[in-house]
Amino acid sequence: MITQMQVKGLMFDPYNNAYIVILRDDDQVEMLPIWVGKAEASSISLALEKVAPPRPMTHDFMKSYLDAFDAKVISVVITDLSENTYFAKIHLMYGDSEYAVDSRPSDAIALALRTQAPIFASESVIRKQSSEELGQWLENLKPEDFGKLDS
């Protein structure tokens, strides 16, 4: 079973000096936080804000690489979580064949946002990540921790 997720936003995690992509399901019941690096967060942020940079960024280049041969991103799926590392698959349609390419969730999400491809998470990933833990973490955040993406 997989659940469709939407990218709700990006937050700065001051404790780990990293960024968190927040995914939520359409019913707003499940939440999946994914920790990503600065460059990946910046790429996702540009796509979320629909900012066109003067030069193609890496994921824009990735999109034009696939576009050049009419390969389509059908969907991306966050498939697994093991030892705090998330795994994802990018599903491509090329000619009459479908391909599943192993990827980090950050690349998968950055590409999905640029190709309007749906993002899914497997049931096991949602079950594995303890929302209780996230709840506690969120409670500890101070208002000034938000909106630091550009710093």
């Binding site: 990018i90 090329y94 391909y99 192993d102 990827s103």
Partner: peptide
């Protein structure tokens, strides 16, 4: 690296599609 980085992913897409 433990996981494919962005350009490893582009290379891997190319390998799947024959580019």
């Amino acid at each position: 690296t433990a996981r494919p980085m962005s350009h490893d992913l582009i290379k891997s897409c190319g390998e799947h599609l024959g580019i």
